[in-house]
Simulated scan of single mutants.
Amino acid sequence: MAPLSHLRLIQFRAGYNLPVHAAIEYGIFAKYGLEIEVAYTPGSDYLIEALRSGKFEIGHPAADDVVAAVESEENKHGRDIDLFLFMGLHSGLLSLIAAPEYPDVGSLRGKLLGVDSRRTGFVFLLEKFLRSNGFGPQDYSLVEIGGWEFRYQALLEKKIAATLLTSPFVADALSCGCHLLSRGDEILPVYQATCGAARRAWARD
């Protein structure tokens, strides 16, 4: 039997990655000659840098993350950021969840909201929602916390008033008394969220 091709994958802790783990568990990748090594990222900035540096061959970032990296000033001034998107994973399996003290959108005015990164990681979706509800930039503050599990924990510890979450963190937060303020498809019906990404140089090889 030919040796398996080893691929390193970096992703967020989230329910939408279940198919990857099921395929590993049931030997689907191995059947087609692949051995997948999975690691988890603390946030989108780390994931993009890990892909760029070659620590991982494939990543599951938000489409926003890759676009921001490719269009960044660093890339324009000669830093090698040759990432590309090659598939979509989902189109918005995320929801805006608020702590128990904040039952509606209006109650978030003047509050601290948790995000992965101020530049990427669905922050554009969150700010679009706030703008559509009459919020200006001065009406809230953003704090960078990192990936889903870190924002979920910050929400339960009441360090932030609200954040975007995905499964299984949404159901867990609601069971603790948090409020569902909006789902991703209500904020923006057509939206490419998490994707598969890689370096062009690696893909060519």
Score class of each variant (00 low, 15 high):
Ala2Leu: 15
Ala2Pro: 15
Pro3Cys: 04
Pro3Leu: 08
His6Thr: 05
Leu7Ser: 00
Leu7Lys: 02
Arg8Asp: 01
Leu9His: 03
Leu9Gly: 01
Leu9Cys: 00
Leu9Gln: 02
Ile10Ser: 15
Ile10Phe: 09
Phe12Arg: 14
Arg13Leu: 09
Ala14Thr: 06
Ala14Val: 07
Ala14Ser: 04
Ala14Asn: 06
Ala14His: 10
Ala14Tyr: 08
Gly15His: 05
Gly15Cys: 05
Tyr16Glu: 12
Tyr16Val: 12
Tyr16Leu: 12
Leu18Met: 06
Leu18Gly: 05
Leu18Ala: 12
Pro19Asp: 15
Pro19Trp: 13
Pro19Gly: 14
Pro19Ala: 15
Pro19Lys: 14
Val20His: 04
His21Val: 03
Ala22Gly: 10
Ala22Glu: 12
Ala23Met: 04
Ile24Arg: 09
Ile24Ser: 04
Ile24Glu: 06
Glu25Pro: 01
Glu25Arg: 15
Glu25Asp: 11
Tyr26Lys: 15
Tyr26Phe: 13
Phe29Asn: 01
Ala30Asn: 07
Lys31Gln: 07
Lys31Pro: 00
Tyr32Met: 01
Tyr32Cys: 02
Gly33His: 11
Gly33Gln: 11
Gly33Thr: 11
Gly33Asp: 06
Leu34Thr: 02
Glu35Met: 03
Glu35Lys: 06
Glu35Tyr: 04
Ile36Thr: 02
Ile36Trp: 01
Glu37Gly: 00
Glu37Pro: 00
Glu37Phe: 00
Val38Tyr: 04
Ala39Trp: 03
Ala39Phe: 04
Ala39Ser: 09
Tyr40Leu: 09
Tyr40Gln: 08
Thr41Leu: 13
Thr41Trp: 11
Pro42Glu: 11
Gly43Tyr: 03
Gly43Ile: 04
Ser44Gly: 13
Asp45Pro: 09
Tyr46Thr: 14
Leu47Trp: 02
Leu47Tyr: 02
Ile48Cys: 07
Ala50Cys: 13
Leu51Gln: 01
Leu51Asn: 00
Arg52Ser: 03
Arg52Phe: 03
Arg52Pro: 00
Ser53Ala: 10
Gly54Asp: 10
Gly54Cys: 09
Lys55Trp: 11
Lys55Asp: 07
Lys55Ile: 08
Glu57Asn: 02
Ile58Met: 00
Ile58Tyr: 01
Gly59Tyr: 08
Gly59Val: 03
Gly59Phe: 09
His60Ala: 07
His60Thr: 04
Pro61Tyr: 09
Pro61Cys: 03
Pro61Gln: 05
Ala62Tyr: 12
Ala62Trp: 11
Ala63Phe: 10
Asp65His: 03
Asp65Gln: 01
Val67Phe: 06
Ala68Phe: 08
Ala68His: 07
Ala68Pro: 00
Ala68Glu: 11
Ala69Arg: 12
Ala69His: 05
Val70Arg: 14
Val70Cys: 11
Glu71Arg: 15
